[in-house]
Simulated scan of single mutants.
Amino acid sequence: MTFELQCTDKASDARTGLITTAHGQIKTPIFMPVGTVGTVKGVHFSELVNQVKAQIILGNTYHLYLRPGLEVLRAAGGLHRFNGWNRPILTDSGGFQVFSLTGIRKLSEEGCEFRSHIDGSKHVFTPENVMDTERIIGADIMMALDECPPGKSDYEYAKRSLGMTQRWLDRCIKRFNETEPLYGYHQSLFPIVQGCTYRDLRADAAKFVADKGADGNAIGGLAVGEPTEIMYEMIEVVNGILPKDKPRYLMGVGTPQNLLEAIERGVDMFDCVMPTRNGRNAMLFSYEGTMNMRNKKWEMDFSPVDANGCEIDRLTTKAYLHHLFKAGELLAMQIASIHNLAFYLRFVTDARMHIEQGDFVQWKASVIGQLGRRI
């Protein structure tokens, strides 16, 4: 994998770049739709390509490990061949999902023992077998196993957790270097910076990760309940240390406003379930603000969902989408998911354009106030 830093904004740390993988190129800043179990909920790949303009999607190691399972994925030749997506894929290590299983998981230096949310069966994730699992899945970008501590963890817990995450990272790197890709193309391993909301821990974590010389680096453990101002502060601390010539991935973030603030601070890659999850619940994002399509105000509004959006946005009226949600039709969730993902991809593409034009900060100031408005 290579990363070419193409343009840096003169008035901020915003930048554009080009990631090249075995399955294609990714223009940054980029938003990555979440395909947890090998599919982006309710959105076919043809729509991801033609409507959403997705350049890369995510898969999740925890979910894919449990179902369809490694035997199926190995026999298929990896996730790309299994699901038919021929563009880049990134896999989360499953750490966040495992550590969210409060009450049915046990953490130790060796790894994490947990019970499946599907059938209660017992499993163990270690840095070594997670690397093996991500090799079998075959993602272009693999994430290291880390602990994602609660956002309000006290300092001592956060420090102990970070120490274990760093020891796990060393084990991940060792196993990664001892093994080879299974399907004839290169895979990259991204470490994850943790440290909760403590400046010194985040700085230590960023230095530790930067020294590994990985193809790219991730920032985890944010947007988990802390105030947004603290999240932005932690991004600044970390990005002040992470190498500028490697892509920076902010995990699990967030709203369009969050993306803008993080791009301004030098983040290149994002993912979040919000566009599809909120879409399934009738919330649409737009430059004018957010729309609840169940509201009666849309009942007689025959204007397009978004006149400047993707084809589906232009063909579908607000009144029709309102009707579909009121009627409980599955098509409502599909259209809303496509709209939100297409908006997010258009949004980061617009950000890229304004960075190149040199007016990113002015553009950000002109749009950020509207984005969170309820309309």
Rank of each mutant, 00 (worst) to 15 (best):
I335W: 06
P243K: 10
F302N: 05
I312F: 00
A332F: 07
T316A: 07
G266Y: 09
A282W: 04
T276E: 02
F360Y: 15
I263P: 02
Q357S: 10
H322N: 13
V238G: 08
R248V: 11
W298E: 04
V348P: 05
V305Y: 02
E311Q: 10
D306L: 04
A365H: 15
N292W: 00
I241W: 12
F302S: 00
G266C: 11
F360M: 04
S366C: 09
N292D: 14
D268H: 03
E264N: 06
I312Y: 00
R314S: 01
F285T: 01
E261P: 00
I241N: 12
L315M: 14
N292L: 02
Q357M: 10
R265K: 15
N292T: 02
G240A: 09
M353L: 08
R294K: 15
N340H: 11
V267L: 02
P304D: 09
D350F: 00
N292F: 03
Y344E: 08
T317Y: 04
T349C: 04
G289F: 07
M283R: 10
V237Q: 11
R346D: 15
Y249N: 05
I263D: 01
P247F: 05
L331A: 07
P275C: 01
D313W: 00
Q257R: 13
M300F: 12
P256N: 13
Y249I: 05
G240I: 13
A327G: 07
N239G: 05
M283V: 11
H323R: 13
F360V: 06
H354N: 06
R352C: 03
D313M: 00
Y287W: 09
T316P: 08
H323P: 09
V267H: 01
H322T: 05
D268K: 00
E233I: 02
V273E: 03
C310I: 06
R280V: 02
A282V: 05
A332S: 15
L341T: 10
T255R: 12
A282H: 08
K364T: 06
T276P: 03
D306Q: 02
P304Y: 01
T255Q: 05
G289T: 04
C310D: 08
Q334G: 01
G279N: 03
